[in-house]
Design a protein around this nucleic acid. Structure first.
Lengths: 148, 148
DNA sequence: TGTGAAACTGCAGGGGG
DNA sequence: CCCCCTGCAGTTTCACA
């Protein structure tokens, strides 16, 4: 993987702050011309440094107000790839990671209500070799940054 | 807060998938003209449904490869606002939420290495009325969506 | 729908390996 | 000596009233 220079960092900072900024605006900040910025962005995209651009949605507006962290305990030794394949198609799964400790994985799940959450949990359990799971309901979301 | 119709949902889905899509591209998918899409996006922006647009960066490229979930146990009864104020200034804190269960809050922390993580944990503990904390290290990040 | 501005491609110049 | 990166001008497309 290529190493990022200082200009790349600045470009990333600009696009993280506003992904819909024009190349000219970015170039104005970092001190480059618009085509030069586009070249770098394209290269960052090709190299996979930038995985994409997305809109930050207010969860309350989507009325996906019920959120939970789910500790998953699996049967046997499972590869991370299998779990990723199993849970990737489930839209309620916001994030998933294998972890240290007693549980095998920790999932963050967002749903419309408790009933919706229950159905999502059922899908999560049936999608992979899950033994059992423990859910922790989120009371209030304090901080939620994309990737600072 | 206004209720979103089906077209709004589609527009949000498009922009979530690619925040740099042109209005014409979005309109092509949802079956609207470009100006119509712009009007909806502007309204969604004004209503706070869309909080902004951001680039999704590969964490490995940023070399923030060490990640942990931290359960925080506090002294006494603490308001969510106090915790938010305490941890908001710490850049290593990606997300924070108050939760059900024995712990009071669950934080997601990203750092450059274990030493960096240790310093971040020290900041987290000293920033608020924290009794003690339990860290769960992430082995591999499987899924990480912004807000689907 | 029209005007202005933005994005995208080819070409020439310059600095570093 | 070669290659990569930058800046400039062409056309085409898009944004905004």
């Amino acid at each position: 993987m290529r190493q990022l220079d200082e200009l790349d960092e600045k470009v990333l900072a600009c696009l993280t702050r506003d992904a819909r900024a024009t190349y000219a605006q970015v170039g104005d900040v970092v001190g480059l011309s618009a085509p030069a910025v586009k070249r770098r962005v394209d290269r960052l995209l090709d190299d996979g440094v930038i995985k994409g651009f997305t809109a930050v949605i207010d969860p309350d507006a989507m009325q996906w107000t019920t959120e939970a962290y789910v500790q998953v305990f699996c049967r046997g030794n499972i590869s991370p790839e299998v779990l990723k394949e199993a849970w990737e198609p489930i839209p309620e799964v916001v994030s998933a990671a294998t972890i240290t400790g007693q549980a095998d994985a920790l999932l963050r799940v967002r749903a419309g209500d408790v009933r919706h959450l229950e159905r999502a949990l059922e899908r999560i359990r049936s999608a992979g070799p899950v033994d059992h799971s423990e859910s922790i309901i989120v009371l209030s979301q304090l901080i939620d940054r994309g990737h600072p």
